[in-house]
Design a protein around this nucleic acid. Structure first.
Lengths: 100, 100
DNA sequence: TTCTAAAATCGAGATATTTCGATATATGGA
DNA sequence: TCCATATATCGAAATATCTCGATTTTAGAA
């Protein structure tokens, strides 16, 4: 639990948007048929929605992952990212304790 | 409620420390007799505890104030800062909604 | 009014973040 | 094996943050 890294990851509006979008898969285009059974969203779809460059979004996903807010799973040439709800909740609890 | 400004204000370990210290007046030296009835802590005491320069801490307190986490009250040549618990709570609620 | 002390503001150098395009790596298919 | 596609990594320019010392402002006291 690295609060510094977590707050830093959230200190960017696009990264916060990504975390919010990932709450609901329907914020992105439908998965390819061969990915129908997989959880998470591939980097390409996230990139498209942000309008930023591929390298920027790849970097952003790495920061969110290091912060523990998302997990990734590789399937073939695609990397699928999804929220880690447990760790998000744990962060919120720690953050609340810090603030109150 | 400017979430951007608020998260940004929290994206610094010393500013987070200051907010925590302000939870309890006894984290600082006792108030001068003529300030015994006042709430809050003067900038000098906060500066002393951080070990940073006067201008840096004055700037930090301004950022925390703009974020709504503290309020200030001037008495003579001293400015006393204290936490705004209501606005801290409101921020936490909004932040929680964003994250969950 | 003049001096002193507290705090705020200003200007600048050092460091960190943002964001890109280019390149590298990994994987599946022809 | 060679190619195409998805993602990751690298290097750099633009911008923002951090932090300082110097200066200014504010207020009380001599």
């Amino acid at each position: 639990m690295d609060l510094e890294k977590q707050i830093s990851a959230l200190n960017n509006p696009v990264r916060r948007d990504i975390l919010e979008w990932l709450k609901d898969r329907s914020n992105f285009p439908p998965a390819l048929p061969e990915h129908a059974d997989l959880e998470g969203v591939c980097v390409g779809y996230i990139q498209e929605k942000t309008g930023l460059s591929q390298s920027t979004v790849s970097n952003y996903m790495g920061l969110l992952k290091q912060a523990g807010f998302v997990v990734s799973e590789r399937h073939g040439q695609w990397t699928f990212y999804r929220r880690d709800e447990d760790r998000i909740r744990a962060f919120l609890a720690a953050f609340r304790d810090l603030m109150l």
